[in-house]
Design a protein around this nucleic acid. Sequence first.
DNA 1: TCTATAATCGAACGTAGATTCGATTAATTT
DNA 2: AAATTAATCGAATCTACGTTCGATTATAGA
Lengths: 215, 215
Amino acid sequence: MARKPADQSVHRDDILRAAAEVLQRSGYEAATMKEIAAAVNLTAASLYHHFRNKDTLLLAVLELGLDVAIRKIEPIAASDLPSDQKLRQMICVHVVGLTENTAVGAAMVFEIRALMQVKAPPKSASAEDRAAYADFVARREAFFKQRDHFEDVFRVVVREGVERGTFRPLDVPIFVKTLLGAHNWVGVWYRPDGRLNGAQIAEMIADTMLKGVLA
Amino acid sequence: MARKPADQSVHRDDILRAAAEVLQRSGYEAATMKEIAAAVNLTAASLYHHFRNKDTLLLAVLELGLDVAIRKIEPIAASDLPSDQKLRQMICVHVVGLTENTAVGAAMVFEIRALMQVKAPPKSASAEDRAAYADFVARREAFFKQRDHFEDVFRVVVREGVERGTFRPLDVPIFVKTLLGAHNWVGVWYRPDGRLNGAQIAEMIADTMLKGVLA
DNA sequence: TCTATAATCGAACGTAGATTCGATTAATTT
DNA sequence: AAATTAATCGAATCTACGTTCGATTATAGA
């Protein structure tokens, strides 16, 4: 076999989605390129046509997941709803998003460490390899900036609510960490065949956290 | 070198504590036996005198962490405090515990998957290896039972509070997952040199969650 | 003091997995 | 239709790591 006919050809996003599922099952280090490739009916060698290496593939998965999450909450934060309704809707869309794609959600929680652990190539490496690593580091830093931005969108909304007296006075960063911890954990324990669906779970979490923050 | 003099000799618990730190930094798959051994000034080979293999070492770390956590919350749950004070104290001791030993806390969050992924030895394995695996599986199941028990201690306290009318009517399992998600996340972001100490963080989380659950 | 056991090490083994390379075929462009 | 580029594969390479083994020294018990 060589190149597949166009209708069977695999594209970048197919690989990312499949990779996220493999990562969820196995974790980054245990996941093999072969395993990821098999999930889209390719061989390991073929993956290298789409991604420079395993690290870059991981980064691409995380970038995708974060972008999706940010695109969901940002318009709500920018709307002119009252603070409490803003926060409730942000919680709900984020939690529902996590239940709809637990693979990417779990990757965002579990694989950040692997991303940080990526080690520089040895000094003996080719100039091309060193350039590729520099690229990787730059993209990774941008990713972490985006991640902080995501958290900041929540902080801004909560701070606004406190200033307007809708929310009680509290430590905004800690409250947001508390909230996001609760969210992230959903991606770990949620099962599509469970007792409740994503929307129901999201409402319950929102009820608790809103009661916890209201003045 | 061979056996070290008694005062430099390394004991099981030293290894477990060091292993937890290595796991926190690297994750189970990326952590090498050499790296763990180096953290207690041993060679990789020496670890095999204390633990049958890497999987068993991981399990021992997790067992230790869970035992510590359970021993902290159980007496509070068994006390005759009112429900809200019980829950508040349980939250506080657990969160403070996580900040005091982030390594074990992080392992409990991140390495469970590695524990589940441990694969059976091939049929070609020795009888001894197969027996060892059976032992491992039994211990692992006991661990998961304990883990569910830990969560159940929280559920019982919350349910009691709901029944007595101290807490509002809510979905107890979901509330407890929400709570524990917030807790677990502390072990991920907490830094000993941060703005707040463990007790302060614990109080803030308790404030939010108590407000969220009170009738 | 003699023996058995505990704790340690260096070296060697086997294997699995990331990555590379050259070849091969499909699609696209000229 | 010729030439170029895209997508794929099998096979080979290289390395790192878990684990085993035999030897060596400390400690504890008789």
